[in-house]
Design a binder for these strands. Structure first.
Length: 529
DNA sequence: ACGACTGTTGGTGTA
DNA sequence: GTACACCAACAGTCG
């Protein structure tokens, strides 16, 4: 009972199922839970920062109720620096994060190779058995005899900052629909109980979410994926329910699928150097990209979705499909990497592997091969929303258009546009491309790109990237020892962390520790190791 | 090595 | 409203 522990909160912003926090609190005399804010990290937009600050306040409140606190210094050492310097000073550093159910175990079982189909993942999982059970929630009992020293100046110096203090513009946030934090996450989880716990009726055009919206909570670790899995398991008992891939368990397995792919495939979030990614000559068209990002394509369904994304930070998965297809193989023929960056900024739930994996999928670059299935920016939304209520909600400029023209306002006669108080080309843009011609042309280009692939030298699978791991918890981290020069170099490193180079993380300790740790930061754009 | 099977969720036109 | 053919015919996986 003599030692002090520091618990560094990174992605697991919760007290339930947090083995690292539990271990830190066990038999310790002084506990210092902390979170390090790095305003320069990642591309997160204002809504995502608000979610994070909510989560931190919630965490601090929960800890305070047990006599502890969670300070959030903003001195922003780069991910990895702290662990490295502690290691150099001979302080034991343990890294125990469980952002997934089993992706590292799957990779270990499959010689470091990520399965490229859902079926493949399922058969590997079958031999691993069920996921681990969640760890007990931290309670007052765990903290017996343990205290957190707090200075009088705690709140002013280490309290959770405001958006302004982070350099974010608070006027940019949308309605506060999804407050961050563990408390909100568990409340949302428990409210599922009242609903049919099978795949919810899902419609991209519903005015309030028809799916669970647990994804932002999973992304920040406000909700443990293992807790969610076993909670579902209990609710499913003795009930008729759907099966993977469409059940909620199945949805969590998709998450595992992309986590596995993200950890096992080099350059996963890029086209070049990514062995599973179709190599495509995407167009460089900043005007079209901007129109898509700002919801100014002239296709109301697309623009409404992009508006919901920007203001609310969450859109239905089929809405994501529609806009992703439109940007890439469907209409604009712009690289999925551009879309990935926009989603990373605007989505509350942008998780590195899931974001990259789904962009690969929707752009027809990997995993998905029926490239002639193209979402229509006009017909797709109409299927579930004939009258265009969704468009009217998010694009009020079009709200008085008759249903007949709401998906294609440019087709409305001048008199109808005047009646609706909206002239296409003046108050709302003309379509930036003609979908019929564009999609036809792009289908041909897609075919050509795929034909090209056959001529290339066969792809080689590269060495496995994941550090070996025996369970979903990571082993003791051993920082390179006795290398003070390395540590100070690192601590002096300024600016953004470079993208993860997958050349050889094992041989370069600096690269390795960064690679190893950075994925735990909420906004860090690297693999979730 | 090879064939069979399968794949979370399309659009359009016709009967 | 529903059912079906057609589009053009892939790639990973498994036996």
């Amino acid at each position: 009972m003599q030692h002090s522990s520091i618990h560094w909160f990174r992605k697991g912003l919760r007290l339930h199922d947090n083995p690292a926090l539990l271990a830190a609190a066990t038999d310790c005399h002084r506990l210092h839970p902390l979170f390090i804010l790095d305003p320069s990290s990642g591309r997160a937009g204002t809504n995502a920062w608000r979610f994070l600050l909510d989560a931190l306040r919630d965490l601090d409140r929960s800890l305070r109720e047990m006599g502890s606190r969670c300070p959030t210094p903003s001195t922003t050492p780069r991910g990895g620096c702290l662990a490295l310097s502690l290691g150099v000073q001979g302080i034991q550093t343990r890294c125990r994060a469980c952002p997934s159910l089993s992706h590292l175990r799957v990779l270990a079982l499959n010689n470091g190779k990520a399965p490229l189909t859902y079926k493949g993942l399922q058969s590997l999982l079958a031999s691993l058995g069920p996921p681990e059970k969640p760890a007990p929630t931290l309670t007052l009992e765990h903290l017996q005899g343990c205290h957190t020293p707090c200075q009088v100046s705690h709140d002013t110096e280490y309290g959770v900052p405001t958006l302004e203090e982070l350099g974010q513009d608070p006027t940019e946030v949308g309605p506060h629909l999804y407050p961050g934090g563990e408390t909100a996450a568990l409340a949302r989880l428990n409210s599922l109980m009242d609903r049919t716990v099978s795949k919810p009726e899902t419609e991209p055009t519903s005015l309030s979410p028809s799916t669970t919206v647990l994804s932002p909570y999973l992304k920040f670790g406000c909700l443990s994926v293992r807790t969610f899995w076993w909670w579902l398991d209990e609710v499913y008992q003795g009930r008729e329910h759907s099966q993977p891939p469409v059940s909620l368990h199945g949805q969590l397995l998709w998450r595992e699928f992309f986590y596995t792919a993200g950890a096992g495939i080099p350059n996963f979030d890029r086209m070049v150097g990514n062995p599973v990614c179709l190599q495509v000559n995407w167009d460089n068209n900043p005007q079209h990209l901007r129109a898509w990002r700002e919801g100014q394509t002239g296709y109301p369904f697309i623009d409404a979705i992009m508006t919901q994304l920007r203001t609310e930070g969450w859109i239905h998965h089929l809405a994501r499909h529609a806009v992703a297809c439109f940007l890439t193989r469907g209409d604009l023929w712009i690289s999925w990497e551009e879309g990935l960056k926009v989603f990373e900024e605007l989505l509350l739930d942008a998780d590195w592997s899931l974001n990259a994996g789904n962009w690969l999928w929707l752009s027809g670059s990997a995993f998905f091969h029926r490239y002639f299935h193209i979402y229509s920016p006009v017909a797709f939304g109409k299927k579930t929303d004939r009258d265009g209520a969704y468009i009217r909600k998010y694009l009020p400029v079009l709200k008085d258009f008759p249903a007949k023209y709401i998906y294609e306002p440019w087709k409305a006669p001048r008199a109808v546009q005047e009646q609706a108080g909206c002239l296409v080309g003046t108050h709302y843009p003309q379509p930036i491309v003609e979908h019929g011609a564009a999609s036809k042309r792009n289908l041909g280009r897609m075919k050509a790109a795929r034909a090209q692939k056959g001529n290339k030298s066969p792809r080689r699978h590269q060495a496995p990237l994941a550090p070996c791991c025996h369970s979903s918890c990571l082993p003791l981290l051993q920082a390179p020892s006795g290398n003070n020069q390395l540590a100070s170099q690192w601590l002096n490193h300024k600016g953004k962390s470079p993208r993860p180079s997958h050349t050889d993380p094992h041989r370069d300790p600096q690269l390795w520790v960064r690679h190893y740790l950075s994925g735990f930061d909420p906004f860090c754009s690297t693999a979730p190791h």
